[in-house]
Computed example of a mutant assay.
Amino acid sequence: MERYSDEELEEFKEIIKENYQQAKKELQLLRDQVSEFSENISEGFGADYTQDSSSVNQLEMLNEQVLRKRDQVQDLQNAMLRIKNKVYGVCSVTGKLIDRKRLEAVPTTTKSLEGMKLQASGIMDVTAQDLARQANERKEGPNKIISKIKKPPPPKAKPAPKKKSRRRKKVEEEDEDMI
C-alpha cells in the first residue's frame, strides 16, 4: 500500500493541529454564546410572541453551529488518528493516495476526487455477495448461473371451507322469535 512519508505526515500533522486548536476555540466561543443567550432568553420569555419566535430561531441556529463545529473537531481528531496509524491521505474508496493539494485544502477528507465520483455514481456500492457472484460468473459464465436458478413449485391451493352466511342465520333466528 502506498502512503505518504513520515516527513509528509508530520507536515500534515502540524496543519491539523493548527486547525484543531482554532476549531476548539471557536467551539468554546459558540458554547459560551449558547449559554449566555439561553440565560437572556429565559428572562423576558413570553412577553412578546414575535420576539420569542425570533429568539428561539437564533438559539436553534447557534445550536446547529455548535453541532457542526463539534463534528469538525471530531473529524480533525480522526485525521490525527489516521496520521498516527500512517494511513492518512489514503482514499477509503480507491486505496490510492489523495492529492496533496486536496489534503491541504480539506485536511479531514478521507476520499480522493476519483473515489467521491465512484461512490456518487454507485459503482463502488458492491456487497460481498455481489463480489462472490461476480467471481462465480467469471468461473462458470453468466448463463450457467442463470440456468441453475429453479423456481419453487407454487403452493397447492386448499379448498376453502364453506361458511354459513350470517344473513341466513339471522333470518332463521328472526323466524324463531316470531313463533
Rank of each mutant, 00 (worst) to 15 (best):
K144N: 09
K69M: 10
T127V: 06
E140H: 14
Y49I: 05
R100K: 15
V87N: 15
T94A: 05
T108L: 02
R70E: 06
M61S: 12
M61D: 14
Y88C: 06
G141H: 00
D99F: 01
D52L: 10
L113C: 00
N63W: 03
K117A: 04
P153L: 14
A105I: 11
S112Y: 11
R70K: 10
Q119K: 10
G89H: 04
K151T: 15
T50L: 07
R133E: 13
A132R: 11
T110A: 07
N143H: 03
V56P: 02
L103A: 13
I98E: 02
K86L: 04
L97W: 05
E104H: 04
Q65I: 03
T109K: 05
K150C: 01
V93S: 03
D71N: 09
K144L: 01
M80D: 03
V87R: 14
D99V: 07
A79R: 07
M116W: 01
P152E: 07
L81S: 02
D48S: 06
Q129A: 07
Q51S: 13
M61Y: 05
M80I: 12
V93L: 00
D130L: 09
T94Q: 03
R82S: 13
E140S: 09
G122L: 12
Y88N: 10
S92R: 06
S112E: 06
A105Q: 12
V93A: 11
R82K: 11
S55M: 06
L118V: 03
R133T: 14
T108R: 05
C91I: 08
P154V: 14
K151D: 15
K84P: 00
V106P: 01
Q129R: 05
T94P: 08
P153V: 14
Q134R: 14
D99C: 02
V106R: 08
K139T: 13
T109F: 04
I83A: 07
G95Y: 08
D130V: 10
V87A: 04
L97G: 02
A79F: 08
A120Q: 07
K101F: 10
M80Q: 12
A120E: 11
L62I: 04
Q134G: 12
I146H: 05
L97A: 06
L81T: 04
N78R: 15
Q129G: 08
